[in-house]
């Protein structure tokens, strides 16, 4: 009897999550249409398995987990079929917002594209979706510490790529160390 109620609530929550699922899917696969296919599949799977979802727990995290698993298992299959070549080119077609936006955001988007998949994903889930480290660990099936270090490395790398991690704050660049040790090296020779 409450099942219908439960379904209604569940459906409303799924609807609320759709824009986020689409955004995350797009950032995973770099292709809008594939992203929408992924989201659709995620919703179908979630709906089929809704009886296994514990009410009161985090539906959004559950949906993200399903989406992510679907993406990676499909990609594994696809890889076996198509071999890597094509995938490498097509998987990271930069996706730009409708508004080309400020130069600033354009640069940021490009920097984001250069992060490793793991780092980008962790950073997005924590920094943009607002999941806790624990939730992200659940979603990605890894340790909390791993999530933390991925997020940190992602930030550091972005700061670097964007040139905002100012050199003066961190002391001399290692390049000068290199020069010194090189000199030493040549002295020995």
């Amino acid at each position: 009897m409450t099942t219908t109620n439960r379904d209604t609530t569940l459906e409303a929550d799924i609807v609320a999550a759709i824009p986020h699922l689409r955004a995350f899917a797009t950032s995973l696969c770099g292709n809008r249409e594939r992203a929408d296919d992924l989201v659709q599949e995620t919703i179908l799977k979630a709906w089929d398995n809704r009886s296994s979802f514990a009410v009161g727990t985090n539906l959004k995290a559950w949906l993200f987990t399903i989406l992510r698993n679907t993406y990676f298992s499909e990609r594994r299959k696809r890889k076996r079929e198509v071999e890597d070549a094509e995938d490498k080119i097509s998987s990271r077609v930069a996706v730009h917002g409708e508004q080309q936006g400020h130069m600033d955001l354009h640069d940021f988007r490009q920097a984001l594209e250069q992060l490793s998949e793991d780092q980008r994903e962790a950073l997005i889930l924590v920094g943009a979706e607002g999941f806790s480290y624990e939730e992200v660990a659940e979603i990605c099936g890894c340790a909390v510490g791993t999530v933390k270090s991925r997020v940190n490395r992602a930030r550091t790398r972005l700061a670097d790529l964007l040139g905002v991690g100012s050199v003066s704050e961190f002391g001399p660049e290692p390049v000068s160390d290199g020069v010194i040790s090189n000199r030493r090296g040549s002295d020995v020779m």
């Binding site: 689409r22 950032s27 996706v95 917002g97 955001l105 997005i124 943009a128 979706e129 930030r155």
Partner: peptide
Amino acid sequence: HIGSRLRAVYGQLVQEPIPERFSELL
């Protein structure tokens, strides 16, 4: 700085209109 740029970039994706197919699906 990084956080606000990230949310701006990602926010553009979140705010995109939802295609018809999803209301059909539901």
